[in-house]
Every structure is written in structure tokens, then in C-alpha cells.
Design a protein around this nucleic acid. Sequence first.
RNA 1: GGGCCGCUAGCUCAAUGGCAGAGCUGAGGACUUUUAAUCCUUAGGUUCAGGGUUCGAGUCCCUGGCGGCCCA
Length: 502
Amino acid sequence: MTEQNTPATEPAEDLPEQMRVRRAKRDRMLAEGVQPYPVTVPRTISLAQIREQYAELPTDTATGDQVSVTGRVIFIRSGGKLCFVTLREGDGTELQAMLSLDRVGAERLEEWKRLVDLGDLVAVTGEVITSRRGELSVLADSWSMSAKALRPLPVAHKPLSEETRVRQRYVDLIVRPQARDTVRTRATVVRSLRESLFRRNYLEVETPMLQLLHGGATARPFVTHSNALDTDLYLRIAPELFLKRAVVGGIDRVFEINRNFRNEGMDSTHSPEFAMLEAYQAYADYNVMQVQTREWIQEAAQAVAGSHVVTHHDGTEVDLGGEWNQITLFGAISEALGEEVTIETDLAQLQRYAEKVQLGVDPKWSAGKLAEELFEHLVQHTLQAPTFVRDYPEQTAPLTAPHRETPGLTEKWDLYVGGFELATAYSELVDPVVQRERLHAQSLLAAGGDAEAMQLDEDFLRAMEYGMPPSGGMGMGIDRLLMALTGLGIRETILFPLVRPE
RNA sequence: GGGCCGCUAGCUCAAUGGCAGAGCUGAGGACUUUUAAUCCUUAGGUUCAGGGUUCGAGUCCCUGGCGGCCCA
């Protein structure tokens, strides 16, 4: 504590002992003319390649093969004249290195014991061997520091608290292999979706995230400001209105995978920024999108698990194979209530049903909105196996085409898996006059203070007036797809989720 | 938004209102075949923050912060 062995720029007395010790080791290296953070270190082969090439090497064998390897120190077992260390590489592969007095010499062995801590990144050059216990190892002739860690690693064999996992994902990634697996799984899923859509001749585009008007969904937007335009801008809540402009222009199969932003609650299924796939296909409808969506998810499952049966992190298996259940919104409500409910059922009757099942009712709700609330209250959580819920009331789906058989309904489905909504699709409303009426009604709500209502996007309506082909459109939450495939919470599927300031 | 639970050493956790502890990690020492090595010695604390009750508060009360679970 009285030693002045840390640089003056560091408030030494504020640091825990273990961090002071590591800083002191760094300083000692510098004082001895050794780089604690060299620009390069020798590396001729990955740990994974060694494991692959020497998989069959028998116990206590010397190969004569010289290699240089790198990795993070995750276990140290040091003896007087022989030290063992377990190195781990980015892909999770671990390999043992051995440093013996007769190979590296007394001086370098002492420096190893003096300078190397758990968590450091080191490079080791030596011979590939197996130990007397049969452990594949690099028997060092020399070693060097790749990067000195100034903070101690958390205990490797106790789980990190959930909060630390999220706030310090880099630590989570270092100590928990599953955290790294999740990153890989997500990349695999996104790549699979892209390939699935490319195979069906969809084009990938990027549409504006900064928008003058927010639309395409009902949600509260984030507001930001453009100095150049001296105007407020919205972070998009959905790419829908721009993707439809693309379809108007003749991009007949189009999709985007990117972030949307919604200024709403944060919980185990909602993140303020979330990744979404949105896809449109001209001359298709919600039935076509239903088949494709199932195929894309099944192809993603295949990419991740090699099968349509995915295994969640808690070991439960979820079968996403075959055809999926299909029910109608009103059919599901009727079954749950034991009463016949249709689009014709009036608001007063629905309110009586709501009271019967102890659902709180907002007097501003339309009959359609109340029907949806009844569904969410009674049915949603029961839909564990993948289920398409079809045919929603017009009042709650302003951008959806009227149902071709039943007046008052629209051609929209929601896909539920594991009790939450994973995707939605419409036969798109392409009549510009009706579209204008619907958006005008929305804009009146917005002007009246409903922060979730859409604003009137005249440019979008102008585009529609040039004629949009009859189309199917779908949207799916990427984070939620990961949740469905892995069983993880949304904050585990997002690498760096938004957290409250510390 | 409401209810409940939690926040203590670098990490994971203990501690009837009565001396703040353990394991791992760290430091010093022993060990040339270890696998979360082992053995000996030892250091480490603004108990989330701020008030209050009390002779005495990690513990009880209040306010706030952060997190988790359940409900809306």
C-alpha cells in the first residue's frame, strides 16, 4: 500500500489489491524492456488445428513438431520445475502447454511464475507432445506475453450473476462457452434466413432508419434531431412503408434484415432495439407467406441443430418439423370461452365476456381490439407448439387487405411459438383510396395524442397511387426466432442489449 | 404501472440486533506429469446510496438506485 509501483495516472489506493498486483507486473515488464502488449507474437497454428491433427497421438509421445500457439490462460498448475497451463482460444478450444526447467531455463520459468496470471493472453513456442497422463500439450521452448490482463477473471466454475453477464458481456464470453455459442447460433440463423430468401429470388435492400414520419406499425418511436435539416427525425419502428415503395417500383421480391426501435417497455421478451426480417412478395398472399415462413424457420432450425427438432438450453426438445397448427382468431376465442364469438359479435357482448374472464377493459377499445385482447388473455400463452392464428379484425390491422370471404376480417396471421408472437404476415392492402382512409384515421388518433398511432405519410400514399401489385408481406423478430430456437431470454440472444446506466 | 425477492472481499455466497466470515482468486513458500492440482503461511471490506430507530444496524424502519421473478 505504501509502494509507489503503479503509474501516477492510476489512483492506486482506489484499486483492489489484485488489480494493483497486475499493474505492477505490467510495470515490471516495461522496466525490464519486455512488451506487455507486443504488436505481434509468433503463431503458426491454431489450438483447434493441433487438436485435429494430433487427435490420435498416444500417451507420453514426442512428435518433434515445432509450433507456436496463442491463447488465454484459464487454468494454471505450477510446480517447482514444471508448470502446466491451460490455454483457450476464441472458438473455445482448449490446449495444455507445459513449461519445464530443462527446456525454457531457470530464468524464463521464474518469469513465467512471476508475471503470468489467470486471464492473460500468452504465446508459447515448443514441441507437440502428449503428457504422461495422455494430455495433448505444447512443451515450451519459449513463451511470451501477448497481452497482460489487468483485471482478474471471475471464478470459472461458478456462474456469473445474470446482471454481470449482460453488463460485461466480454467477461461472459471469456468464461462461459455457451455465451460464445449463442453468438455463433445467431450468426448461423441470420445467414440461414438470408440464404433461404436468396434461394427464392428475394433481393436484400436497406431502407431508411432515420425517418421524417413514423409508420408501418403501431408503436411509440424514438425521436432524434437533424441539425442539417433543423427538424426532428424518428428512428424507424418498421421498414414496411419503404419496402412497399420498392414493390411498387417493381422489386417484386424484397427483404430487409435490420434493426427497428420502439420506445416502449423492456422485459424478458421486449428490447427497445430489435432485429427484424421483413419480406414482401408480389402476386403472393398471406397463404404463400405462411408456407414460406414455416420453411425459413425450419431451414434455420436445420442450420442450427441439423434437424427440425431443436434442443433448448435447459435440455427440452422442441419439434418444429412438419406442418404447423392453424387456427382462426375468433375460433380460438370461441373455444376458450365456450361461446360462439365472431366478427359480428358486438362490443357490449364482448365486454360481458371480458368481465366473465376478469379481463380489464379500456373503454376506448373497439370490438376488434377487445377481441384481440381476449385472445391474448385466454389463448396466447397456451400456444407452445408453432401455431398460425389467422384472420384478424379490420379495426386492428389498418394495412391489411380485406378478407376475401368474410366482411370485417382481414387476411392477417400471427405465428406463435413457445407462447409468444414470433412473426406476422398480411395479404397487403394495396387499394390507395382505402389505404388513405385508414391512414387518415390513424393520423387523427396521432393528432389526438395517441403516441402509437401512425402519421399520415403522403409520399407513401403517392407511391401506392401508382399501383402496387397484390402482395404478401411478412415480418419476423430475429431475436425472438433465436429465443424460439434456443429457449434463451431476449437479453441473452442480443450480444450487447441496452441496460440502464450503472 | 403493481406485488414479492435480492444487492456483503476480484468472483460466488454465509453471518438471532452484539468481534463481518467461507470457498475460489491474490500474495509468500514447497513440489518435473498436473487436469477446478495438492500442502503450509497470509492479505483482502465505504456490507448499493442517503436518512431514521437503538447503548449497539449487514440485520429493523423510511426514501432513492440497480437487478430478478410474478402480475397488468
